[in-house]
């Protein structure tokens, strides 16, 4: 299959389910006869599943049938969040990234990992040397300055949440 051959994740992680299988899973998810929604999403959320996709778009570009597998993987991720499966690191990346931008206008790259790794103490601890090195090289702006347009960004988020 063109998409699997072109998949960036599959190249380095051969146990990855891959774009074709995941796109097929999405078809089951939107089939009204299907009853295994949450169970399937839980399985797909495990290692080698939907959160291993790096969104490189290769599968979309090479697909001869315009299946756009990566788009279906993104839909599976969205369904997972909607089903309350929000504790995985992949899910936290989306929710916390969106939260930070909604509050500050642009991405605070120091706050995002802290929010994502809160409670994952081992992983957070292992990041400390990198964080110190980045700080010393001026790669973690301190204090973080919001952009001038952050109030408009907050208004856009509020408007969206109210809908």
């Amino acid at each position: 299959m063109a998409c699997l051959s072109a998949c960036s994740t599959f190249e380095v992680s051969p146990d990855f389910l891959g774009p074709a299988a995941l796109a097929k899973s999405y078809r089951f998810m939107v089939d009204p006869r299907d009853q295994a929604h949450k169970e399937r999403l839980e399985l797909l959320g495990e290692d080698n599943g939907i959160w291993d996709c790096v969104r490189c778009n290769f599968c979309v570009s090479v697909c001869p049938k315009d299946v756009a597998p990566m788009e279906q993987i993104i839909r599976l991720r969205r369904l997972s969040l909607a089903a309350g499966l929000s504790e995985s690191m992949g899910a936290l990346h989306i929710t916390q990234f969106t939260k930070v931008v909604g509050q500050e206008g642009h991405l605070n790259e120091t706050r995002l990992p802290l929010l994502m790794l809160l409670g994952h103490w081992g992983k957070l601890f292992r990041m400390i040397p990198l964080a110190i090195k980045m700080f010393l090289r001026g790669k973690t702006p301190f204090p973080f300055k919001r952009t001038k347009g952050y109030e408009q960004v907050r208004a856009i988020f509020k408007n969206r949440n109210d809908q």
Partner: peptide
């Protein structure tokens, strides 16, 4: 007054 483009992540949400 630029804001984040979302980097494809906000699109996922």
């Amino acid at each position: 007054n630029f804001n984040c483009c979302g980097a494809g992540v906000i699109t996922e949400a």
